[in-house]
Write a protein that binds this DNA or RNA. Structure first.
Length: 352
DNA sequence: AACCCGCCCAACCGCGTGCCA
DNA sequence: TTGGCACGCGGTTGGGCGGGT
């Protein structure tokens, strides 16, 4: 299809707008509306192309534009919507009155993206980063955590711990999934059995995790009690029912479990409202891992509220998206256990 | 004080798509 | 059905600015 010749004309002014040009554009549109953007510059006495006028109006001069810093709430909305919509900036902007797609796009690229990367979250997939570079850097990553710990910087070290743990957990799931996809899955295979029997291939992490026994301890914390009783022990019975998560019987189901686990905080987590009550499925997931439900679920990794409580406000905003959806309101808290154990030396992510 | 460098964001570029003759 | 026009959108650019050296 032919491209618009709108801006091909030479002699038209480009670059920053002057106050006089702004005034002309505002006055014209207030009087006549924008009508045809192509015709507008001529009618308004502007030596600009229509496209430039449209951009200037929609991104800057429109009276309903809300300027200034993005609030935490807006930031959360952007992150949530981006996890569902991707780089559909205009669609995201539609949910944020007064904000333009351009503004949101810029804010994403300059602030949110970096913040997510720093937290070990892939800004594209909204999942914990599992790229090889990150895994390769895990020893340094943990060394920094140790250093910060020694220096009394609890905020950073705890966050780094959680990120490392999240990374390991995600890697575990991915390895498991890969292994599972390479071999036929028995009809009644249990994901918890699979997880328990899975070999962990993240060598860098494994080295840091120490002995197999220690790794086993980590797995126990990640997975909760044994495969046959997970519904009655650490794994709250409400989790599987409320979230519509059932034990998968095939690879596709398992894949969905994987997706769900990332978004919902993983096995062993449950979702609760601010009163500590479990949230019913109609509030969270319609059924069968309906992906559309993600538009109301913050696409965030599970983080121990204890850790968040120790975090600085500036870095905790992403996790605030859970807001009323407090994870792990049950006494059993996998991330908390893991961090507690690591702090006490049972699991040497941090050497005290 | 001068220079450098990285960040931020307004504006541009080019493609996709809908509409209409 | 086809081709041209207009608009919207997402990616990219580059100038201004502030902090660091």
């Amino acid at each position: 299809m032919a491209r618009s010749p709108c801006c091909d004309d030479s002699g038209l002014k480009k670059g920053p707008w002057t106050p006089e040009e702004d005034q002309k554009l505002i006055e014209y549109i207030q009087k006549h509306g924008h009508g045809s953007w192509r015709a507008l510059p001529r009618l308004a006495g502007l030596n600009r192309c229509g496209k430039s006028c449209r951009l200037r109006w929609t991104n800057y001069l429109r009276p309903d534009i809300r300027r200034g810093k993005f609030s935490d709430e807006e930031e959360q909305i952007i992150i949530n919507l981006h996890s569902v919509l991707g780089n559909k900036w205009s669609a995201i902007a539609n949910q944020l009155p007064g904000r333009t797609d351009n503004e949101i796009k810029n804010y994403w690229n300059t602030h949110i993206r970096k913040k997510l990367l720093q937290m070990g979250i892939d800004p594209v997939t909204h999942r914990p980063r599992t790229d090889l570079n990150l895994l390769a850097n895990l020893p340094q990553f943990l060394a920094v955590a140790n250093l910060n710990n020694l220096m009394g910087s609890w905020d950073n070290s705890l966050r780094l711990q959680a990120e490392a743990a999240q990374l390991a957990r995600s890697q575990l799931f991915q390895n498991l999934l890969q292994a599972n996809m390479n071999t036929p899955t028995p009809p009644n295979s249990n994901p918890f059995n699979l997880l328990r029997s899975a070999s962990f291939q993240g060598q860098n992490f494994a080295e840091h995790a120490g002995s197999n026994a220690q790794l086993e301890g980590l797995l126990s914390n990640l997975l909760g009690p044994g495969p046959d009783d997970h519904h009655t022990h650490h794994m709250p019975s409400t989790t599987s029912t409320n979230l519509g998560i059932q034990e998968p019987s095939n690879v596709n189901d398992y894949n969905q479990i994987l997706d769900s686990s990332v978004y919902l905080g993983g096995f062993g987590s449950t979702l609760c409202d601010s009163n500590g009550s479990s949230i019913s499925d109609q509030n969270l997931i319609s059924s069968s891992y309906d992906i559309s439900a993600l538009d109301i679920i913050p696409p965030l990794v599970s983080v121990d509220p204890k850790m968040e409580a120790k975090s600085t406000p500036s870095t905790s905003t992403t996790f605030d998206a859970w807001g009323e959806l407090n994870l792990d309101c049950e006494p059993t808290n996998y991330w908390g256990d893991m961090i507690d154990q690591s702090s006490s030396g049972a699991w040497p992510l941090i050497s005290s």
